[in-house]
Amino acid sequence: MIPLNWYLWLSGVVFCIGMFGFVTRRNIIIMLLSVEIMFNGVNISLIALSHYLEDLAGQVMVFFVIAVAAAEAAIGLALVILLFRSKETITVDDLNELKG
């Protein structure tokens, strides 16, 4: 039997890798990918807790997380296409017209 903590540690590591990617990459598609990695880190901990607590609420939460992730990917990628159409770049550091 694998201790619950191992799953939670794994989920923490995956979440932090995703966060590192989100704050340091300049490519907006990779930033969206990093958000997906963060979602997956949280999903691992939800499923693990659902199994160890013998309660299916965690698995139901994962459905909602996946639904929100799908919505976020659709909207985010539509915005990326818009951005590329007007600026010809998806590097976020080049998109600095709103800076004060």
Partner: peptide, 9 residues
């Protein structure tokens, strides 16, 4: 163009 730029801040 974008893949030739620096990838990290």
């Amino acid at each position: 163009e974008d893949v030739r730029k620096k990838q990290f801040i």
